[in-house]
Design a protein around this nucleic acid. Sequence first.
DNA 1: CTAGATTTGTTCGTATGTATC
DNA 2: TGATACATACGAACAAATCTA
Lengths: 255, 255
Amino acid sequence: MNNKNLRIPKRIKRSDQIVESVKRWVALNKVQPGDRLPNERELMEQFECSKGTVREALKSLEVQGLISVRTGPNGGAILERVPYDKASELLRNFLHFDQPTGPEIYALRTLVEPEIAALATARVTEADLEDLDALVKRCEVAPKTFEERIEQRIAELDFHILLAQRCDNPMLAFIGRFLNDMLRDLLIFKKSALPEQLEFSAANCNYHKQLLEAIRARNVSGARKLMHEHMKSAEHFNHELEGQLSQHFLGATNS
Amino acid sequence: MNNKNLRIPKRIKRSDQIVESVKRWVALNKVQPGDRLPNERELMEQFECSKGTVREALKSLEVQGLISVRTGPNGGAILERVPYDKASELLRNFLHFDQPTGPEIYALRTLVEPEIAALATARVTEADLEDLDALVKRCEVAPKTFEERIEQRIAELDFHILLAQRCDNPMLAFIGRFLNDMLRDLLIFKKSALPEQLEFSAANCNYHKQLLEAIRARNVSGARKLMHEHMKSAEHFNHELEGQLSQHFLGATNS
DNA sequence: CTAGATTTGTTCGTATGTATC
DNA sequence: TGATACATACGAACAAATCTA
């Protein structure tokens, strides 16, 4: 009754065939973002199927973030670059039943953030430097309220996210942004149980200031080194935090 | 005419609402993989919509890899862990218009593989060790044919993929596997233009042998160190390769 | 092995909403 | 404002897959 048979669909679904066809077409013909796909009627004729089936295929492509669909004249499906949010959402789903813990996220961050800092140093613009400066300044003053404390932590993460976005290597950029997004979610999720950690905030703020200086001076190896120290420090404080939390709520070290 | 207006859909689609509802339900009620969703009829009643709309929502969830759907009695939609292949495919789509180059992949690999080796060392089973040994042995003999050469390279990557799968940290495991998959694709895609690189193969095989010994001895720091050297070496050879390729096909250093 | 029950999969026709011209 | 072209949604009917007796 409950034995796990291998699921080998005898008949591949029509709509999936259409999805594959469109993907091949995009890959082979070097279709660019913004180019239009054939409209529903043409697709119906080309694949000899009904409107509903075409719609299902388009829906599938839309869910994957590959196209966007607009109504009206000159509407229809157009090819899109997959937006970061889509990719992020889908990777989150993958991790849903293996929720990364704080220490796991920090472990990965320690590996990638130094390289992100190094790559970003060569590419940030003057405007970026101003934005980074504004984010640092927001963390300088001592937080008065609970909300302010959370906001400062988020500003810290935004500092890292901006660097990740300026990073040349697309995969490194994605991973960096994703990790900081995960921390942001974790922060918001269990913020009510979060102790103050004044030292942590001060250390972060200090590192960010030094990092900003190194980046402004286009000092690549300096930025890499600083970021590594920063991550080691953050990892340490997170370890401390997890210890405190598990004292309060035994067995609640995860998620 | 062609100005990029922000797309702010005034009316959120009915099927997307259903998707969000189901996701919330899964997150809040701690639904486990294997649990059944309500069938189409019940969903129609619950959301007061037609069969087509329910099907569209289910399709969306299926594309995201969150459910699988079967026909027949006891059929219907059941919650699934998102399989690696789905997540991998979707991340590939995200990177489609920013195809990572060889050097970019190697740069990331150098960062993560040493840690993967360290984490995996503590967790590989005896059976895994045998599999790893078999993969190493496949690369020991000198390749006679062109196909054999490619197969050996793939066996090398499988070595890394197995380690990644045994890795404790789910994100690190995913990234490691994904990077090696990308290299595999790159290899197959431009294999016809691939020069022999005897030194490279020999170096890889040697490193893998030493790694296997370190892992068997559960020597964590040794495995980490060896893997780092291995990656540096591979990065170097890849750099050499890219140089050769760009001499042959000027301007074809990418993809 | 067959027949029937159950549930998803596909199609058609129609109606409605919405953005562009 | 109205016409047009397209996506969105509904309902009914039928097809196909799969389990059970």
